[in-house]
Design a protein around this nucleic acid. Structure first.
Lengths: 355, 355
DNA sequence: CTGAAAGCGCTTACAG
DNA sequence: CTGAAAGCGCTTACAG
């Protein structure tokens, strides 16, 4: 009955070749012990002779498991996300799972139907990292998540979710920013700019909270004109800082810059050089993410390592364990050479800044 | 008969709720037109009411297609591969396919059984990029590929395969290297080092051929001590060039360096600075790949854009079209500021070099 | 230690 | 326009 008319060879072909039932073939396939040595040998040789491979599809059909996880990530071209993926993927592999990557930008383009995209595939669960979304897209995301959650476990990652119903791993960005500001105020900086991020974004707002709090703790008034919003690329950082330096007299320039991430920091360093500012002599620059290129910038970049691999790995652990907690991820300031004491500041300027 | 005992709701549940047969449900699911409007509406509302999602597993079971492609890539942390992945993934998406990424290093760790890993998943085809392998691993790869090819179409990518039986997209590395050397000899350089890559590697040997040919075309003898083998990271590049500069008198230093890739180039620039060499005034540095950070190095890096996105996209096209050709991919030299004329060279040195 | 039968959740001819 | 039946390639109780 089961001819290999279509060329695919099945467990029936093996059974026939070995002169046993498909049940027995299935048993040796799954490595069960209750098969006689001679039968096993016959089946094995039939399998090899026919180059038989069991269909994962049929297997999953009965077992209801695919051993495949999905991960939704914004842009892999940013090594930050590549680090997250690497950590998640390796943890998955360690547990016998493969990982299917869904680039986020294309999700938005393709009507952003997270639920359909993920469900149509063969996933046992999904890790989802979302960046800032317009309110309308945000609503769509939430309903997508609701639909998705009905069909598989989901873990959110990267930023503290507004949704408490989902397990999550994220960085405490307010705390992280306070630490960055504290590091720079400890270096006697008073005019500290913060570059990058979208004003409407919840996560960046959290960073903003930490930024303002950090300044306040050091007795520095928050100067909104030193908060430069913009994107997250090197070009964005370069443009933002260029604009500030172009429109202010040098005496009003910041003595330190905290960048949204290392890419933005790299752009800021380019803007500083363009304006003849020595880094860190005349301008300290601090990044975030600790990407592979940051020790090779000139000067090497002081930044925050966000342990992206652990973040991704932890998300997979929560997913596989079926945990429902929301937990904070670790980070650490990496001191290199791009930040120095605020010696350029005159007491005059300090006075002006303190108003 | 089909109770939703396990919680999963199926096409039978929908059929019952809508008072039709499963055939009819299947028809509206697949958007066939031969269903009356009223029936369609009933089925639709049953689907929505039950939050029904068809099982992709069962669907693929009959259709024999999963609409999922696999891609094997070395280390995603190198943005070069991220660019390849992006191009491949977007092309796949454009054609209704998802893309499962298999990081290569973990394949090697996990006994390197490409065939098992890929077949156990649900793939309609695979794009495979391999880097240099030890001879033993190379053999295992080839037998894995043979096994894999029996079950799905495969396209090789990135380097010219030794295997002619597989469709492939790759760069003509000898030609690319000749062009790099020609660019630098055009700038009057005579002592041109080549940094990075493994001596035993076929692909790098091809680059070596182009390197030697390029020198020869400019009437320069090949000096083996200027060929610095090593890995492909920034650290590798830094160490390799440091070693050369440490062991040679400054009068014997190269006036130009071609790096295996942008990461190595970045490391070379660090080594140059450590030895007080101005780039490009005293040492020209040329990279390969044109990664996002290269315009932000100081000075901005002259490099070769390898059109990685097109490379990945083209591989997917060949895969989906069932083509069997091996074709060359495009590349282009991107001139920035890290290479300049060889003015540091004295006629004495030139003479010595020419022997 | 081995096998016959039912079932996983769909799609696909085939009838009507 | 609609439905009954077979089949996709396995695994899983259930018998023996």
């Amino acid at each position: 009955m089961n001819r290999d008319a279509k060329g695919t060879i099945t467990i029936y072909d093996v059974a026939r070749a070995a002169g046993v039932s498909i049940t027995t073939v299935s048993r040796v396939l799954r490595g069960e012990s209750n098969v006689s040595a001679s039968t096993r040998a016959q089946v094995q040789s039939a399998i090899e002779g026919l180059h038989f491979r069991p269909s994962a599809l049929a297997r999953s059909m009965t077992s209801k498991r695919t051993n495949t996880l999905g991960i939704v990530l914004p842009k892999l071209l940013n090594p930050h996300y590549a680090r997250v993926f690497t950590g998640a993927s390796e943890e998955a592999q360690r547990n016998g799972y493969a990982m299917t990557l869904f680039p986020f930008t294309s999700l938005i383009e393709s009507d952003f139907d997270l639920a359909t995209l993920l469900e149509e595939r063969f996933l046992d669960g999904a890790v989802i990292l979302v960046e800032y979304l317009e309110p309308l897209q945000q609503e769509k995301l939430i309903s997508s998540l609701t639909a998705l959650k009905r069909h598989m476990p989901v873990v959110l990652i990267g930023r503290k979710p507004d949704l408490t119903a989902y397990p999550a791993v994220y960085h405490n960005m307010a705390q992280l920013m306070r630490a960055c500001v504290a590091y720079l105020t400890g270096l006697k900086h008073k005019r500290i700019a913060f570059v990058g991020g979208i004003e409407a974004d919840r996560d960046d707002i959290r960073r903003d909270v930490g930024y303002v709090e950090g300044l306040s703790l050091a007795g520095i008034d928050y100067d909104p004109s030193l908060r430069l919003y913009g994107g997250g690329t090197a070009q964005d950082g370069e443009q933002a800082l260029n604009r500030l330096l172009d429109t202010r007299p040098p005496t009003q320039w910041p003595t330190a810059v905290i960048a949204l991430n290392d890419l933005v920091a790299m752009g800021c360093m380019a803007a500083a050089k363009k304006h003849g500012l020595n880094v860190p002599g005349q301008l300290s620059v601090m990044g975030c993410d600790n990407l592979f290129f940051s020790p090779y910038l000139d000067p090497p970049l002081t930044t925050v390592d966000c342990r992206q691999e652990s973040l991704g790995a932890r998300a997979v652990q929560l997913l596989l364990a079926g945990e429902t907690c929301q937990e904070e991820a670790e980070w650490e300031i990496i001191v290199r050479a791009s930040c120095a004491g605020a010696e350029r500041q005159t007491s005059d300027e300090v006075h002006k800044n303190a108003r």
